[in-house]
Amino acid sequence: MFHKLDGAKLPLGLRLICSAAIAALTAVLIAIVILSGPAAPGLQAEVAAQLARSGVDNPVTAVLLNFRSYDTLLEVAVLLVVAVATMPAPGRRLRPALAPTGDMVLIGLIDLVVPVVVVVGAYLLWVGAYAPGGAFQAGALLAGAGVLVSITGRFQFSFGALPARAILALGLLTFTVTAAAVALQTGVFFQYPTAAAGVLILFIEAAATISIAATLVLLYGSLVPPAREQESGP
């Protein structure tokens, strides 16, 4: 599938022309950016003016989960599509992903680190309403804990099972259902009632965190070579 490119170098003249063209294009783009003056102020003033109605104090979370929540919904949907694409076939027999390790240092470290990571992930999720943090960061941290657990080989995640699939879909499901439910009250899809906005955002983010973490662990698990095949080689 991949071929060595060493033997097929471009002629020197062509390489010089290509690098000159790329350098010129880069210089022109940089010049345009510098000459076009200060960047437009953007929508910071509008976001700051409406922040009180968003239910959270962090402008980034307000934009992601309230003002532009449709974009975030689609991001969560993309993650679900990724999960479906890498998911193991239903009913496939579970094989040990890795031989269980006897490395006491690794096991001891993971016993210490994983609970801390889970607590920090929950903190990042909660603090997203006030300061930098949020569902994606918390989900990635939790996924890191999941990867750590799975490299010992003592535990493995079976994403062919029905509960695991429910967890993968939980984020998108909660997001869509909440968006539709608030539409019953306010009349507009994704228009949260101002009083309940903070709680609703935390609720959606919690569900999204779990799905994001599960999707990322699934991605890692789909890449790890099965231990049995490795040993059966000649």
Binding site: V60, G134, F136, A140, A143, Y220
Partner: peptide
């Protein structure tokens, strides 16, 4: 915000 995401996803998980 971007820094936290980059550290967790860009450096950590992509590396893994």
């Amino acid at each position: 915000d971007v820094a936290i995401a980059e550290a967790a996803i860009g450096a950590g998980l992509t590396g893994a």
